[in-house]
Design a protein around this nucleic acid. Sequence first.
DNA 1: TCGTTTCATATTGTCAACAATCTTTGTCGA
DNA 2: TCGACAAAGATTGTTGACAATATGAAACGA
Lengths: 229, 229
Amino acid sequence: MDAEAARRPVTDQEIYEKIWDAIAERQIGPGTRLKEEQLSDIFSVSRARVRQVLQNLARDGLITLVPNRGAFVAKPSIEEARDVFFARRTIEERLVERLCSTIGAEGIERLRRHVDDERKAHSGGEVATAIRLSGAFHLLIADLAQSQILAGLLRDLISRTSLIMAMYQQKDVLSCGPDEHAAIVDSITARDAKKALAVMHHHLAHIENQLDLESERVVARDLEDILGL
Amino acid sequence: MDAEAARRPVTDQEIYEKIWDAIAERQIGPGTRLKEEQLSDIFSVSRARVRQVLQNLARDGLITLVPNRGAFVAKPSIEEARDVFFARRTIEERLVERLCSTIGAEGIERLRRHVDDERKAHSGGEVATAIRLSGAFHLLIADLAQSQILAGLLRDLISRTSLIMAMYQQKDVLSCGPDEHAAIVDSITARDAKKALAVMHHHLAHIENQLDLESERVVARDLEDILGL
DNA sequence: TCGTTTCATATTGTCAACAATCTTTGTCGA
DNA sequence: TCGACAAAGATTGTTGACAATATGAAACGA
C-alpha cells in the first residue's frame, strides 16, 4: 500500500485538501508553523510544489505567509471572524434572493437531497463530514444562483469560516445544523425572496453568535501523525 | 540607465504591475499568449519568479493558466462581465450603506480629495491613471467601510473590471467619470444610506451599460516593445 | 545576573539544468 | 490533393543545489 503511495504521484490538490482537512478538523492548531521541508518529506514531493500549495492556502486565508519566515496556520482575530460573517451575509443574502426568482425544479431537488445528506452525516456524528457538507450547502446555493464570481468568492469565505469555527466554536455545538438549511430551502421553494433573505440572515447570525471569544484552544501535535500517508 | 535596471533586482510586484498596466492600457490584447521565457528575458529574472507572478495574475482573473500550455491574457465573455458587475453591485451597495452610518469627518475628507485627484487626471487625459484612480476610489470606499474581507474581494473584481473595460468599452467613453463618484460622496456625506445605495447601483449599472458587445478588438503587438525596461 | 554581541544552525528564497508534454512541420501513402 | 503519422522543436513542469536571511545559543562584558 505504501509502495503504491510512493509510486503514484500526489497531486497538488490532494496535498491542499489534506492540510485543509487537518485544519478544519482542529488537528493543526492556529499559529502552528508549517515548514516546507517537513511537508515535502511527509508528502514525498519537492519543496517547490509544497510552496505552491502553501500559496494557495494563503490565498484562501487558511495560513499566513511571512516573508523569510515561513507559513503559519492563520489565527483569525474575533474582528476578522465577524468581518467574514459580514461578508458572507452580504453575498449569501443576495444569492438566495436571486435564487427565488431563477431556480428550477431540478435545482430545488438538488438542494433537498443535499440537506438529506447533511442530516445523515449529522446524526451519524461525522464531524468533519458534517462541516464539509455544511459548507458545501452554501456553495451549492452559489452554484445554483449562476454567479460564478460570487461562488468563487464564497468558496474562500467558507474556508475561512471553517477555520474560525475550528478556533472559536464552543464545544458540543455542532456547526450549523441541517434544520436551518432546510428552512432556507423551504423559503426558496416558496419563492419568498424576503423570507429567504431573512432566514439566511438569521442562519448566519446564529452561527456567528455561537462563537466563543474566550477559549483559544491551541492544539499542537506532531504533523507527521496527522498528515501522514 | 539600462545598466542600472540590470543591477537593481526587480521585485515581483513591479513585474505584476507592469503586466497589469499593459493589460489595462489595452496594449496587450485578450488571448495573447505570455511565454515564461519571453517574460523572464524582458525583466531579466528567472522563470521561477515569472511563474509566481503569473499565478498571482491568474488568481486575480487577468490571465488564464492552461496546464502544459501556458498563460494567456483572459478573454472574459460578456456573461462573465455581467457577472462581475453583479458581484460588484452586491458588495459595493452594502459597503456604501454601511459607510453612511460609520464614516467620520476625516474619511469624508479623504473621499473628497480622491475625487479631486480623479478630476485632474481625467481632464488631463491620462487614461491609464484615470482608470487606476477610478478603481482606487472604489477600493477606498471598501477600506473606509472597515471590511478587510470585502475590500480584498473587491480588489479582485476591480482588476477584472479593468480588463473587461479594456475589452468591451466603447471608444471615446472614458471609464466612469468623476462626477458620479462625487455624487456618491455627496450621498455618503449626507448619511443618506438609501440614496447612496441607489447612486452606487446606478453608477455601476451605467458602466455596465457602456459595454459594447460587438467590437472585440484584439491588439497583438510585440511584448518587448510594451513591457521593455 | 542581566543585557549585548557574535557565531552556528535552520529555514526560506532563488536559480539553472533536466524531464515531460504539447505543437508544429515534414513525409508518406491513398 | 488530402489526411494520417512521425519526428523535431519549443514550452511548460519538476527537481536538487546554492545563496540569502532569520532564529537561537553561546560567549563576553558590565
